[in-house]
Design a protein around this nucleic acid. Structure first.
Lengths: 227, 227
DNA sequence: TTGCTGTATTTTGGATACGAGTATCTTTTG
DNA sequence: CAAAAGATACTCGTATCCAAAATACAGCAA
């Protein structure tokens, strides 16, 4: 069949929300930073209206906090909250993985393989933004076979939050080697149908990065306090 | 300490979104119904602007679907999707319950008791809307001790969807007696610290209402098709 | 009759303008 | 001198207006 070239029409709030999201994820807009509609409007050379919509959307996603008549600011999570975000990822991802594995076909595995290869090349280039995206794509591909759209959407929201903190510290993370191997192992376990082992590994995989990250963020924050 | 009487200032989009949400939950705005901004604006006697914001918010909550330049409509879920929603409830609620039980204090139990009593009086009055709210409040109270704000927020979003379908069929549900007993049992098991048993019961409790509901919705929908 | 095309109407998206709410700074008073 | 009251500046929220997109419909041709 001729592939439909469905171009997704993006309205201004769409593209602005996307851009702002990236700026928050990349840390360009820092935690706690206050947001002024007019400033952004001028920056993007549009009226305040699409800015408002974009901000409201990000607010619904949890990236910015909003107060009536008082404007917004980039959400700042406490350490326990960040831990909670990763616990949510474990909860949801393991459930999805368990449901997905029995349904995975060769094309699913191929797709995961493909992403994994791309990741391994970008390891070397130290391209943080790209690695983050691929990491997320890999996890998404693992659960695609579950056919659980709503759950996957929910996971996307949670992962968005997690990614903020992952990217913040990705550049400083020394040992990405273990993660690399774990990704391979995850795929292999899934391929050989070892559901429980695979889920167990996935759980450990996320928990490990959670602990590593919490440590780094705690260090960074206590350091900032002493300034 | 003196309880803070933080009055939440509600802007127009707030109250409109709340009202529309109720109208969708109550079924006054039916599945698939298209939404016209101007009509609502006239109805609430405001401009289209606050309506737009309210709709966007409901869209973020998943209650309405939005298409660029094409307006919105009340979300309609497929049967598998409705099942998925309840599976999500099981996943998240059981996790919260397990974390909450060890942390529950006497005041937590008292609060649950209180809601339970209110529910039992409204059983008789067949006050569907009120029962739905109390049911949700009871589940929320069960998990309050977990102190997991983000997870509870996520659950609220999911429960919102579930409540739509619960309320749709609450009036026709014959046997609410089992649910009544299960609620009591849940509380007692939690009180005596039997974590695993309590979680097991909770899982069954939700799964049962899922199955009951899916059956009814399937019947209703196939009936509508033959018209 | 059927299918296409161009136009008209409807509906949404975005800009501008105005009004309301907040915070800050100054002034006044105890 | 401190604290409260008032004035001012600034930002957000809402209404109105205009432009762009989508849909519906009518007319025309095969």
């Amino acid at each position: 069949m001729a592939a439909k070239r469905a171009i997704k029409k993006q309205s201004l709030p769409d593209v602005i929300a996307d851009d702002l999201r990236q700026r928050i994820l990349s840390g360009e807009l820092a935690e706690g930073e206050t947001i002024r509609q007019e400033a952004l409007a001028e920056e993007y050379d549009v009226s305040r209206m699409p800015i408002r919509e974009a901000l409201k959307r990000l607010s619904a996603e949890g990236l910015v906090q909003w107060a009536n008549n008082r404007g917004g600011s980039v959400t700042r999570h406490s350490l326990p909250e960040i831990g909670e975000i990763f616990d949510l990822r474990i909860l949801i991802e393991v459930d999805l993985f368990r449901r997905a594995i029995p349904c995975m076909t060769n094309s699913d595995f191929a797709r995961c393989e493909d992403i994994l290869r791309q990741m391994e090349t970008s390891y070397d280039k130290n391209d943080v933004g790209r690695w983050g995206k691929l990491n997320h794509a890999f996890h998404t591909a693992l659960y695609a076979a579950s056919r659980r759209n709503l759950t996957n959407e929910l996971l996307d929201r949670v992962s968005l939050q997690a990614d903020r903190y992952v990217r913040m510290h990705l550049s400083v993370m020394k040992q990405r080697e273990p993660a690399r191997k774990e990704h391979r192992d995850l795929l292999e376990l899934a391929q050989s149908g070892k559901v429980e082992e695979a889920c167990e590994l996935l759980s450990r995989h996320i928990r490990r990065s959670k602990e590593q990250l919490l440590e780094m963020i705690a260090a960074k924050r206590s350091e900032q306090e002493t300034l």
